[in-house]
Design a binder for these strands. Structure first.
Lengths: 384, 384
DNA sequence: AATAGTAAGGAAGGTCTACTAACAAATATG
DNA sequence: CATATTTGTTAGTAGACCTTCCTTACTATT
């Protein structure tokens, strides 16, 4: 059984193959650092001739440069190192997850934040948010010290492949072609993705997570998840993959002895017992408010158990390698995580749980932001 | 955000592009039936010239043939229909799901069973099963009336992309390179896949299920699932995706008022309360044995509720379009399915549940068998 | 019946891409 | 110092698809 697409889709022109090979070279340089042309040839399976040709074209485009002779005295002609230029471009990224402020940044090739700017939303919705977003992007573009490769936006809501926000109730956006609007205003390539999907891309690219079975769980005002399988983002039938926040986890019929968790709460979505009613920053803060440490740990553990119960079927169905959580570490990193992992191990078979890790992100608060940058790298250069 | 692979993998040679385009043409003919070259050009985006060239090469290989003029008097030169030859080849498929018998068949291009043969396992394990399998395949190859394109095998267990069975405890197979062994013995291409994965391929190709969010749940001695997302089979980090049978669903701490379900049972895997302890043919038969119809319906509904609870996180995380069940309809198709679907709708948000269907297979018992045939079609021709 | 318009399919020629083969340059090793 | 090894380039070849132009065959109109 091969891992290729089951159903061939779309024609492949020579130029597409060329772009693919360029991406392979960039990808290798991006993750491995400077190497020789001969090494690139061995890594990609292409010939040295073809690699030389590709490198020349990448040099012409200013993306890579020669970096002198490789150290280490081996037999044969010394290799010339080729590496990504760190002054080739920068990327503008904006994270719209927060309901109060838009957080933006200029990042360099390696995902390091060079400049930050934020704008308060001040209760704006709809077109006014789009206006404010464009303004913030203009400011950030002006702050960039090199060419801006593109703009990446991580937004809550359901977003399709073209960067149209199908629905984002918190911003009062419905069928808003956000990518097209911002791109039109700035004259730059713009890529828009769901914030949880951006977060998972951030983990994949900058967090060192596994490309063949990764789920990134973002806990903020609500809960969202992004999933990468076999190196591909899972979009879902209607672009709504990862909507784990409104799965029922507290059931009035169960849990009579799960005293710490209490009764099912009504959720903002109108239903009862959703994951978000227990696993969100406000809900967790309410839960631990005024409790002494031991009691707080028990309370967080009971939420962790529910998380484990929800994740167990997902982890089993997909045979995931990594689950990465982001959000306030003081709430998530301790008993909540430990209990979630223990519950996952209890409730899945060994072949599944043995290969699994559940951990906090190493990207801090910038998961979605750097993921938005990855949207640009991936969309413009095929690098992630 | 594009749907392309985030990380470019593997070089693309011109011959690969050519093979891809050949597959596109075959795929279109396979699903749409005979069409003109001009229609193929419009459908694929390739030019009429290129399509003519591809069709010529497919004719040379005996896979397609001209079928005379297209009916319907429109302006212009009448089109010549091109179609898949139904005498081009046949496929041999074997389903090893059953612990008692190996079920094999010869199928034509369109997945119709032409001949069937079965062999009792008689308690054999290990190499003896491989021997018996090879024998059955030989018989089936001899029964074929046209060239045999290849052999497809659907087996329980964890199977990697090369067709090596990493572990299949029921057959006492560990690290058995089954595809290589059978291929060596028969001199034919052999593709081996997990039985649940084969079943989902069967649903995809012959069951008309959605390619962008499909889960096929197979209920037999145990429970297995195969998943197709964005037209690709989900393999999992360690090739164990779909192992839903041993997720805990009955919890001694919960369910106090879920009287019909009873206490958690010990599972063959040594843990307690696995899905398989309530959702498997033996477990379901035990549960309804001796019950009158109403009581049986209540008992089946309680299992359906558990199934819904397990599926809710998976369906939400992946935003699935179709969940297709196979197994004994008298157990699965009634209250069990209805309750599972109702529970799914209760426990997921509308954007998820509105796009979801949960239904019985239309392929009867032959899901895995025809899926094994799809392994061959997909592997040899790129058609599914 | 003659003419115009439309569509299918094929032939010729050009471009792009990556390959193979052969070679020059530069170094370590015996 | 001669030889083996490795890097990177040059030159030529082959595959695949494209654009352009042409013939064929049919419908619609005068």
């Amino acid at each position: 059984m091969s891992t290729q697409a089951l159903r061939p889709t779309g024609k492949v022109l020579p130029e597409h193959a060329r772009a693919h090979h360029r991406s392979m070279v960039l990808q290798h340089l991006f993750h491995t650092g400077p190497v020789s042309r001969a090494d690139l040839a061995r890594a990609t399976g292409l010939t040295r001739v073809t690699i030389s040709d590709l490198v020349t074209s990448l040099q012409t485009d200013g993306l890579v440069t020669e970096l002198g002779a490789a150290p280490g005295g081996r037999v044969g002609k010394p290799a010339t190192l080729v590496g990504l230029r760190d002054d080739a471009f920068q990327v503008v990224a904006v994270d719209l997850t927060d309901d109060e402020h838009m957080h933006g940044a200029v990042l360099d090739v390696f995902g390091t934040v060079v400049e930050r700017r934020s704008t308060p939303l001040d209760g704006r919705t709809g077109d006014a948010v789009v206006e404010a977003l464009i303004g913030l992007c203009r400011d950030l573009v002006a702050l960039a010290t090199y060419r801006v490769l593109g703009v990446g936006v991580a937004s809550p809501g359901v977003i399709d492949a073209s960067g149209t926000v199908l629905e984002a109730p918190n911003r009062a956006w419905y069928e808003v072609p956000l990518a097209a609007l911002v791109s039109e205003a700035l004259g730059l390539p713009v890529h828009v993705g769901n914030d949880a999907n951006a977060a998972v891309l951030g983990e994949l690219t900058y967090g060192g997570a596994s490309p063949d079975g990764l789920l990134a769980l973002t806990v903020g005002e609500g809960v969202g998840a992004g999933i990468v399988l076999d190196g591909r983002l899972v979009a879902g039938h209607r672009h709504a993959a990862g909507e784990l926040g409104h799965v029922t986890v507290v059931d009035d019929r169960d849990d009579v002895d799960d005293a710490p968790l209490g009764q099912a709460q009504t959720c903002a979505c109108g239903r009862r017992g959703c994951l978000e009613t227990v696993l969100s920053v406000p809900a967790l803060r309410r839960r631990v408010a005024g409790l002494e440490e031991r009691a707080a740990a028990v309370a967080l553990a009971s939420v962790g158990r529910r998380l484990g119960i929800v994740l167990a079927p997902v982890v089993s169905a997909l045979n995931l390698a990594d689950v990465v959580m982001s959000g306030p570490a003081e709430l998530l990193a301790g008993p909540l995580r430990d209990t979630a992992l223990a519950t996952l191990r209890e409730r899945t078979m060994p072949v599944i749980s043995e290969g699994l890790s559940l951990r906090m992100t190493t990207l801090g608060e910038d998961g979605a932001l750097s993921g938005a940058a990855v949207l640009v790298l991936s969309g413009q250069l095929g690098v992630s």
